[in-house]
Amino acid sequence: MTAPEHRDARAGRGDARAVLTWLPAGVMTVVAVADVIGGPGVGLLPLVSLGPAFSGLIGTWRRTAVTGAVALLLCLGLGVYNGLFDTRRGYTALVSVAGVTGAGVAAAVMRGRREAELASVRSVAEVAQRVLLRPVPRSAGPLGVAVSYTSAAAEARIGGDLYEVVASPYGVRVIVGDVQGKGLAAVETAALVLGSFREAAHEEPDLVALAARLERSVARELNAEKFVTAVLAEVHADEERVVLVDCGHPPPLLVRADGTVEFPRPPAYALPLGLGVHGGEPPLPYEVRFAPGEQLLFYTDGVTEARDAAGTFYPLQERAGLLKEPDAQAALEALREDVVRYAGGPPHDDAAMLLLRYQRG
């Protein structure tokens, strides 16, 4: 979610909270006016208890208690004005307001405790999210780096997609992947893959060995029905080339300096990580020229499989012109916003993008 979207969402929540804050007072005012106009025969006095009832749903227990006290005074005043304390009606109304106030205070106390627990859990989750998908470096030598992640889960910052950039002794190494499935299980698998990659990227001499190590890590933890598609890259900027290994993942998008676009595809796709028990050929590395002024976009299928109202997939190749923006992060955000507009709303799948831009000297 972009900064303007965050501001709009906060403004909308602020307006709704303001309405709910004044709702108890408004309800009691309407009931009081209607009772005065209608007279004692209308029987609206017990409805004053709606004030503390609404307050218990949205306010603190202190606010609910104050609202209840005001409701009791209002009920007492209206009862005296209408002469209802000559009968049981006035006392019944007072008991009703007092009972609802007590229930509202209890509800507010329990809701406050739940909200405090939720805030604690959310803070822990946010820390875990930052550890899992930590910020990537904005630059690595002559490379500019930008990332974008949109989770399909409401209020979540991460899901089953993953990315990382590591400056290793063998060059700048990158992984972008997509875990099968969704939810906490997918997040756990993503954490496993990223942890293995961050360690192995500094130790394994080539990408095939790195992919094999990731395969072993995933296979140890997952059953044979779970898998992770991933593309690994090793950038040698001084040699103007990038080595790629593709494990069942969509190929990256390469934007040449002259604006032409291509998808460098592997000579043969390897099985996704975690499916090595089924056999298959080992991944084959392949090289692509990567020179100053060019861009390499890695993405997950949440981008290319976004559909418009007619069910047509997002035309990533046609939208590559959005990456002309001088600032790499702004270019990636423009592309992300275009995907959301194309799909007509939030994504139905996690969508991650990582942009490498070979900056001119």
Rank of each mutant, 00 (worst) to 15 (best):
V33F: 07
P40F: 06
V33H: 06
L45R: 02
V27Q: 08
G43P: 01
G41H: 14
R13D: 12
P46C: 03
L44Y: 00
A16Y: 07
G12S: 15
G26T: 04
W22I: 09
W22C: 06
P24M: 03
A11H: 12
G12M: 11
A16V: 12
T21G: 05
G38W: 13
V42A: 15
D15L: 14
R10T: 09
D35R: 09
V30Y: 06
L45G: 01
T21W: 03
V31E: 01
G43A: 04
I37N: 10
V30W: 05
D35S: 15
L20G: 05
A25P: 00
A11Q: 14
T21R: 07
A34L: 15
A16I: 05
T21L: 06
A32N: 06
G12R: 15
A11P: 05
V27K: 07
V31N: 02
D35N: 13
P40R: 15
V42L: 15
D15W: 13
V36F: 11
A25Y: 02
G39H: 12
V19Q: 09
A34I: 08
P24H: 01
V30S: 07
D15C: 08
V33M: 07
L44I: 00
T29A: 14
V27R: 05
A16E: 12
V42T: 15
V36A: 12
V33T: 07
L23A: 07
P40H: 14
V27H: 07
P24V: 02
D8R: 14
V30D: 09
V27L: 15
V36S: 10
G38P: 09
R13K: 14
A11L: 14
G26Y: 03
I37V: 15
P24L: 01
V30K: 06
R17T: 12
V30C: 04
G41I: 08
V42I: 15
V42E: 14
D15Y: 12
G26Q: 04
A25S: 07
M28P: 07
M28K: 10
W22P: 04
G38M: 13
V36G: 06
V33L: 12
A32I: 09
M28N: 10
M28F: 08
P46D: 01
A18R: 05
D35F: 00
V19D: 07
V19G: 06
L44A: 03
T29F: 11
G41N: 12
G14F: 08
V33Y: 05
G12V: 05
V36Y: 11
A16T: 11
P24S: 00
R13A: 14
G38I: 11
